[in-house]
Design a protein around this nucleic acid. Structure first.
Length: 591
DNA sequence: GTGAAGGGCCAC
DNA sequence: AAACGTGGCCCTTCAC
């Protein structure tokens, strides 16, 4: 593909180029940077293209004149990028949005993200790749040469081939969008695509903001756990080698306590009737009779804390900010849920000792808000089950209310045990639980479990009907959708009963979990707009929870913004059931 | 040495 | 045989 491009490196031609481009409806947009993280480098090139004509803007000469976020000569570019029109088409726009915000000081607005669109169209097909080369190949049949992607963008003089490569990427965006939009329309994904695109900027901002972790507190906590581990590990070692020693020629056997194989072997030698796996829930029943098993479980607990949540996480604190800047994948799961890594701040243990290490810096507060039982409310809304809906409308404790109906007693007579059964049932149905699993979980016999589930579904007939229909659709149409229209396609062999069962459970779970993700994403956009220009910063999200940091003086106001954003987003998708958000202003991340 | 696979376990 | 959904991280084991 031949590309016409123009290299721009002075103020006059930049102004002219921007004036020319601002009347376009769509612009391909890309940046070339000297590093992967905005804290580690600078933007060398900004490319903007209408498909025929591509401007490659070299920022190096501008950098020598001052701060790019205030430099008057760059105002036309900043205005173009922050304006809602033209639409900027980018592949993985979060990347460019972070650099733009950090170095040019403006939000990127009017985003069309070809990577997110490609993920939506793939509808859960995990085999599909979504890098630019793969997406261009899939939608345009064009093979892209990405060999220059990692070239040296800090050189004084960029080579012709470097500039041409940069121009090509931006130019490709325009025809790529056209093909993708066609597919989005066909698959009725326009609404969810807009939802996703609008969420890019809030996430870019969140990653730049980072989440403050009090390193000293964290180390104190680790010290405690390390001491525990030493004692427990020594005890466990002794208890286990008692069995091995008899079988060992040397009398002393060092067992790797982290090896399932070695630990299993040792336990067998001690005469413990070993289940198929050494998973906690399988070992739990043996713990009472065999102290060594109890000790193993205790050891596993502390070991997990130290490896997954130990010293490693401190290495993610950036010296520039003193904060953790994790990597969020916006469509981390087919359901639309986020995933998070480096580090995964969505899986910090719930215990106060861990959570309290994530705190507001001095002079600030954390505002922590989560949806109350949002998945069950979504299920109630979808199923239109009046009993289910009423339980939420009356505002009484939901699990108690379920227990009262299932056991046919007065709510005030519900025992703790009965409430616990109801709770596990309420959560189980969201995942498409079966009677055998429910029996195993609760310790009921299978007929008892079946009986209880029958009573549950007799109480909530509409719910039963909806779940059956969802399972039916998943094997007839082989698709499912969320409230925003997010799509998943199920691929399975008709003869593969396990896969078919999997699709049926997914057919029930996907719309619920996925709609919850839709709501959160909508809330993030509403929040981003409300808090813009205030001290409030989005710092973490955990599926149904949003954490914002703000100046103490603005905490109350921020709490209101956050609650409103979350409730309003919920009401857009849930019509028949009230949406409830718990908000807390706090010095620490603990509920 | 590196990487994949499997087991295990943390979050919602 | 599998048996309730979505992820990421750490460990061991094993193949190259």
């Amino acid at each position: 593909m031949e590309v016409y491009f123009q290299l721009i490196n002075d103020a006059a031609s930049l102004e002219k180029a921007c004036a020319q481009l601002e009347s376009e409806e769509y612009l391909g947009f890309d940046t070339e940077t000297t590093a992967l993280d905005p804290f580690d480098g600078y933007i060398r090139l900004v490319q903007l293209s209408n498909g025929k004509d591509t401007k490659v803007i070299d920022l190096k000469p501008f950098m020598e004149r001052g701060d790019l976020s205030t430099l008057p000569e760059l105002k036309p570019l900043r205005d173009l990028l922050s304006a809602p029109r033209p639409i900027k088409i980018a592949h993985n726009a979060k990347f460019d949005a972070k650099w733009t915000r950090h170095h040019l000081g403006v939000d990127l607005n009017g985003i069309f993200d070809t990577m997110l669109a490609s993920q939506l169209i793939a509808a859960g097909d995990q085999d599909r790749r979504h890098n630019l080369a793969a997406v261009s190949e899939f939608f345009l049949g064009i093979e892209m040469d990405k060999s220059q992607q990692v070239s040296d963008w800090s050189a004084d003089e960029l080579s012709h081939s470097q500039i041409e490569y940069a121009a090509k990427d931006a130019a490709t965006m325009v025809p790529l969008r056209e093909k993708i939009v066609e597919r989005l329309r066909q698959d009725e994904l326009i609404q969810v695509a807009k939802l996703e695109f609008d969420c890019v900027m809030p996430i870019a901002a969140m990653e730049l903001n980072g989440f403050f972790l009090d390193a000293d507190r964290w180390r104190e906590q680790l010290d405690k756990v390390e001491k525990q581990q030493k004692v427990i590990g020594l005890d466990l070692q002794k208890m286990l080698s008692a069995g091995v020693a008899q079988a060992s020629l040397f009398g002393v056997a060092e067992i790797n306590l982290n090896s399932q194989t070695q630990v299993s072997e040792a336990l067998k030698n001690l005469g413990v009737p070993m289940p198929e796996s050494t998973r906690a829930w399988q070992l739990q029943p043996l713990a009472e009779q065999y102290p060594v098993v109890a000790k193993l479980l205790e050891y596993r607990g502390v070991a997990k804390s130290l490896t997954s949540f130990g010293e490693n996480i401190l290495e993610f604190i950036r010296p520039e900010t003193g904060r953790i800047h994790a990597d969020f994948r916006q469509i981390g799961a087919p359901t639309g849920r986020f995933s998070c890594s480096k580090p995964n701040v969505q899986q910090i243990p719930h215990e106060v000792e861990y959570r309290r290490c994530f705190r507001a810096p001095d002079g600030k507060k954390l505002i922590v808000a989560d949806y109350s039982q949002v998945e069950l409310r979504i299920l109630a809304d979808f199923s239109e089950d009046q009993n289910f809906i009423n339980a939420f409308i009356t505002g009484e404790d939901f699990h108690t209310s379920t227990a009262a109906r299932v056991f046919n007693i007065d709510p005030k007579d519900v025992s703790a045990d009965q409430r616990s059964f109801a709770k596990r049932l309420n959560f189980g149905v969201v995942y498409g639980i079966g009677a055998s699993k429910f029996a195993m979980m609760t310790g009921l016999t299978e007929p008892e479990a079946e009986n209880m589930m029958r009573r549950y579904f007799t109480t909530y007939r509409g719910l039963d009907a909806w779940l059956r229909d969802a399972a039916r659709k998943s094997v007839i149409d082989r698709t499912a959708r969320t409230a925003s229209g997010r799509l998943v396609k199920f691929r399975f062999d008709e003869t593969d009963r396990a896969a078919k069962g999997g699709a049926q459970r997914n057919g029930k779970n996907f719309p619920i979990q996925g709609t919850s993700a839709d709501i959160l994403k909508r809330a993030l956009r509403l929040l981003h707009d409300k808090i813009s220009g205030t001290s409030a910063k989005l710092v973490n999200i955990i599926h149904d929870e949003i954490i914002v940091e703000a100046d103490t003086a603005e905490a109350e106001q921020t709490a209101k913004f956050l609650e409103d954003a979350m409730c309003d987003a919920g009401k857009e998708y849930i019509k028949r059931v009230p949406v409830n958000v718990d908000v807390k202003i706090s010095d620490e991340w603990s509920k």
